[in-house]
Design a protein around this nucleic acid. Structure first.
Lengths: 231, 231
DNA sequence: GAAAGAACCTGACGCCCGTCATACGCTCCC
DNA sequence: GGGAGCGTATGACGGGCGTCAGGTTCTTTC
């Protein structure tokens, strides 16, 4: 993976004018992150803006009792959490490579601030990029707002199907190429690993989903939507 | 309420240079919104960026089964939901005045895009403003991630105390000057109105909170924090 | 001041869900 | 090949919670 390929994989960078890109390139750092390795940890000083070039990353908050919440599941092309970087504050979440390998590209805060300060299409692109993230976060809040775990799981899986699903080979269902443990599902849906296991086992038994190595298949997407949308 | 007062009440506008402010002022619209009236509704076309000048606004998503989620409780000075405006898309949530009167100031999308495109401190301010909102939304996701309703309610009330609380007169506890119905609490915490009522009744009985007209008092903030933080 | 509607409250019931314990299978490392 | 650790799974249990029904209190409007 080289810098040119990485820039092409990230919408914000792909859309930069050549002048801006050439100005930023000396400051870009591209690195590979092993599976389960952290890109940053909670309380680390923030310094760079981070783009996800390839692979999957989860952003995790941990409360003082030790309970973990996956706040966001990021996908290739995404700009990762910016609030700490903008605020010159330590990170309030961790970011972890979900499955590997993961490639990330970082650009120092100073250089992005210079870029935005110059205005132009780059500043507008940043605005649009970060407003897209806002929409996804509000969607997550809505997903989490049902009092029934099965509905929360269904809402999450529907969203993953929408955003990352492809047709399964053999034409049966929707393939989600993301390797989530039951613990990950529990952390995404605000429940315990035992309950997440029971929900997935029940959905499998009912022929709604099928777990697989390296991802899962949604066999009955309409049923899942129906579960997610019930009051 | 006039335009100058409104600009002073909104951090992003207050920090604009005079040149930029003068350029924007002809396009600003300041209006009052009655209690429970919508500023916009779901599926309305988006056109303007909206700042909350005074009062409280809730942003509500409604799923197809009719269940409502309060995605965010906005406070004076906040920039309201930008994702639809940036995406030239219809709104995917409603915004409602929580108690009245509420004052909002709108600026057409075109004019803010021009402002950001020109760069400078205004573009940087926008960046910081929207990253602050991201932090609040991820905090909301963490609040919602416990499987116990009482913990979710406690987490919400602690957050409200932090962000809007003042010392109660007579020195007893923290006064939260926000008039939330039990249904509002339920919609904020992903539960039903009956359960929200039971939780608040129990917390009142235990001397942790006291409901009042136009808001509530947190009598035992440490106890509430302990509930919120338990695993 | 009365009536209507909204909001708060309580009871009963059944099931969902968290908690704790335990077992099994798979992967990785020595 | 065996052991350790991780991940999936199941059982038992008690309480939390959603649902439905009905009652009380408060606020608003006429």
């Amino acid at each position: 993976m080289n810098l040119a390929e990485a820039c092409r994989a990230v919408p914000f960078l792909r859309e930069l004018g050549e002048t801006e890109r050439l100005r930023l390139e000396p400051h870009m750092r591209l690195r590979q992150v092993a599976r389960s390795e952290a890109i940053w940890n909670t309380d680390d000083a923030s310094r760079d803006f981070t783009f996800l070039v390839d692979g999957r990353v989860k952003l995790v908050k941990t409360n003082e009792g030790g309970r973990e919440t996956i706040v966001e599941l990021c996908r290739p092309g995404d700009l990762l959490c910016t609030s700490a970087v903008c605020a010159f504050a330590p990170y309030c979440c961790s970011s972890l490579a979900l499955d590997g390998p993961v490639w990330v590209l970082t650009i120092p805060r100073r250089d992005i601030f210079d870029l935005i300060e110059r205005g132009g299409a780059a500043a507008l692109s940043w605005m649009v990029e970060t407003s897209g993230r806002e929409a996804r976060l509000t969607g997550r809040i809505e997903q989490l707002s049902s009092g029934h775990v099965e509905r929360r799981v269904a809402a999450l899986l529907c969203d993953l199907a929408e955003r990352a699903g492809t047709s399964a080979s053999g034409g049966a269902g929707t393939w989600i190429p993301i390797q989530l443990t039951r613990q990950d599902l529990a952390d995404l849906c605000g429940t315990t690993v035992e309950t997440a296991i029971r929900v997935m086992t029940r959905l499998s038994r009912e022929g709604v989903v099928r777990s697989a190595a390296r991802g899962l298949v949604i066999l009955n997407r309409e049923k899942l939507l129906e579960i997610a949308r019930s009051i």
